[in-house]
């Protein structure tokens, strides 16, 4: 009995979904060209916007990803930190110090300038 009920409701649900999808598909077929033109304040675009453009955040992103990966080393370090004490602290200090030099270098090279 229960399985019959389950199959019936599944069939009913599928039909309902199919009806809604068909209605959406039909509605999407008409009256849409003027509607889906990009909004340019009453103006028009002469070409479409599938264009290659300068991703100016690109160097910034690379630097971010690189330094985020370095932070992975802090997880194992945090586990042994209590056992090792000051030695681990000094090691990590040297590591982070070197990384900071990298940031200063990227800064000098203009990687953080938005242009």
């Amino acid at each position: 009995m229960l399985s019959v009920l389950a199959s019936a409701s599944a069939a009913f649900g599928s039909v309902l979904v199919a009806v809604f999808l068909a209605r959406g598909w039909r509605a999407g077929k008409k009256g849409l060209w003027p509607f889906r033109a990009p909004f340019l304040g009453g103006g028009i675009s002469e070409t479409h916007a599938w264009s290659r453009f300068h991703a100016r955040y690109y160097p910034m992103t690379l630097v971010f990803v690189a330094f985020e990966m370095e932070m992975m080393f802090m997880y194992p370090w945090a586990v042994v930190f209590v056992e090792e004490g000051m030695t681990a602290f000094a090691d990590m200090g040297v590591f982070l110090g070197l990384l900071s030099l990298g940031i200063l270098y990227a800064w000098r090279e203009g990687a953080f300038r938005w242009q």
């Binding site: 060209w33 340019l40 002469e46």
Partner: peptide, 25 residues
Amino acid sequence: GRPMAMTGDDRDGLALDRLPVVLGP
């Protein structure tokens, strides 16, 4: 319905696609 974008030199010394648009009013 719209032509592909064409390339041109830009401010940053690259030659990427140009997007001609009419904006406003």
